[in-house]
């Protein structure tokens, strides 16, 4: 029997829970992180607006720190379109000053194992984070996500929306934490995750945490995990679509709110085509 691959802890859930659930740590094969690159720092000056799109198509490890100045806005789209068999690990850390805004869109497609970490620190009063993520995993792919929005300033606003589909023997963990730190008076946090299960052998784990040391906040989260909506499929097939086309349409419709955030039309088309192809292969 081959020796188990050595792993190291790449990230942790903010508050641990039962070990048998297997969500306390994000583990990455040691070889992936053998020579981690230095973290890149991006600073958005006060009052300015920037928009970046980062597309990764190969095996990669990256760490990006962004500091968004007072009243500044950063719109960051990160798309990973990884070839089969690649191993990837990404960390994004964002620190928001007063009235800063961070609009983050993440897309995870392909790869053998993907670790995707996001840590947003809403330090400044009135700062906001609007986060949306999309993934589709098939084959024996593993996606491990750990997203944290730490709301420290007064009247902060955080939204985490995660949409995904799992097929074949794919596995995915999504940990999403809204953390209202004492003093975050008037803050609002929303988290929503929807997972579509497309085959009987997938494994989905969801851990939507909400932590609060402040009473004057409004936090909500909702998670739904299940198969494709049969009523929608029935409706579409009764209108003449083949079952495969109906399935493709329903999955892409679910992905649309995240895809619409991808400003680069060519990239959005590429993502759409990637998902369509994977669904056809299935």
């Amino acid at each position: 029997m081959a020796a188990a691959e050595k792993e190291i802890v790449y990230g942790r859930i903010p508050v641990p829970t039962w070990r048998w659930l297997g969500v306390n740590e994000v583990r990455v094969p040691e070889k992936v992180l053998r020579e981690p690159p230095a973290a890149r720092l991006v600073t958005i000056p006060a009052g300015e607006t920037r928009e970046f799109t980062v597309v990764t198509r190969g095996e990669a490890v990256s760490e990006l720190h962004v500091e968004i100045g007072a009243g500044a806005e950063l719109r960051l789209t990160r798309a990973r379109l990884a070839p089969d068999g690649t191993q990837c690990a990404d960390k994004v850390k964002a620190t928001l000053s007063e009235n800063a805004r961070f609009v983050y869109t993440a897309v995870n497609l392909g790869g053998e194992s993907v670790a995707d970490l996001l840590d947003v620190d809403l330090v400044g009063d009135g700062s906001s984070a609007d986060v949306a993520a999309l993934y589709f995993a098939d084959g024996r792919q593993k996606i491990d996500m750990n997203y944290i929005a730490r709301q420290r300033g007064k009247n902060t606003d955080a939204s985490l929306v995660v949409q995904g589909g799992l097929a074949d023997e794919a596995e995915k963990i999504f940990r999403g934490t809204l953390d209202f730190v004492r003093g975050a008076v008037g803050s609002v946090g929303r988290e929503r995750e929807a997972v579509t299960l497309l085959s009987p052998n997938v494994v989905n784990r969801s851990a939507p945490l909400m932590l609060s040391g402040e009473a004057e906040v409004d936090g909500r989260h909702a998670t739904s995990v299940g198969k494709l909506d049969e009523e929608k499929l029935y409706y579409l097939t009764s209108r003449g679509l083949s079952p495969a086309d109906a399935k493709r349409l329903v999955v892409l419709a679910a992905a649309a709110p995240v895809l619409e955030r991808v400003a680069d039309v060519t990239l959005a088309d590429e993502i759409r085509t990637f998902i369509e192809r994977r669904l056809s292969d299935g």
């Binding site: 659930l21 009987p200 939507p208 040391g213 402040e214 009473a215 909702a222």
Partner: peptide
Amino acid sequence: DVSRSDTIPVMDVREDDADVGHEAKIGR
């Protein structure tokens, strides 16, 4: 504002023909 309230749910679903939903609210 001196108290704490934490919600730590985990769902582990290994069957596609399943329907699992979770909703939580925290506040005043």
